[in-house]
Amino acid sequence: MTTPDALATLLDEANHDPWESVQAALALIDGQPHPRVGWLTTHLRATKHEYWTVIAAATGTPAPPDDAGLTRLMTWEVQAARSLRPEALDVAVAHAGRTFTVAGLLRVNARHTAWHAGQIAALAPTERRA
């Protein structure tokens, strides 16, 4: 069974795990990042904000802070997921022309985050890789 805590942990790992996460990928970058990294982080921030705006509207929970950058938003969303009521996970939401449950959209969020973390890591300078 999926729980708010399990989904929060999934997001926390995609965002902050020391080995495989956005935070870990960004830590590989020393000096001027590849220009694509800026686009990826801006895109991740925008999509995370969009997912949570949809979830907030459907569940009556607080919306994400508009002024949060990616780092702050990644921390905020873990706490927001953990704070969801279990029944909120089954609420239907629409995103990008598809219908999901809140739980399904949070899984999309985690997959999307991991996908782009890998892209960011691939753009890190090769001398920093093991």
Rank of each mutant, 00 (worst) to 15 (best):
M1F: 07
T2G: 00
T3N: 04
D5V: 05
L7Q: 02
A8P: 02
T9C: 01
L10H: 01
L11S: 02
D12A: 11
E13Y: 05
H16D: 07
H16T: 00
P18V: 06
P18M: 06
E20K: 14
S21G: 14
Q23H: 11
A25G: 11
L26A: 07
L26V: 03
L28P: 03
G31R: 13
H34W: 00
H34P: 03
R36E: 09
V37P: 04
L40V: 14
T42C: 05
T42D: 15
H43Q: 12
R45N: 04
A46T: 11
E50G: 08
V54M: 09
I55P: 02
G60T: 14
T61L: 06
P62M: 07
P64M: 10
P65F: 14
D67I: 02
A68V: 00
T71G: 10
T71C: 01
L73S: 02
L73I: 04
T75Q: 14
T75C: 01
W76R: 05
W76T: 05
A80N: 09
A81K: 12
A81Y: 12
R82M: 05
S83H: 12
R85Y: 09
R85W: 06
P86H: 01
P86K: 00
E87K: 10
A88I: 02
L89Q: 06
D90E: 15
V91M: 02
A92E: 15
V93K: 01
V93S: 06
G97D: 12
F100S: 04
F100E: 03
T101Q: 04
A103I: 05
V108I: 14
N109I: 00
N109A: 13
A110P: 11
H112D: 11
A114M: 10
W115P: 00
W115A: 01
A117R: 05
Q119W: 00
Q119I: 07
A121E: 14
A121G: 15
A121W: 08
A121I: 13
P125K: 10
R128M: 08
R128H: 14
R128S: 13
R129E: 09
R129V: 10
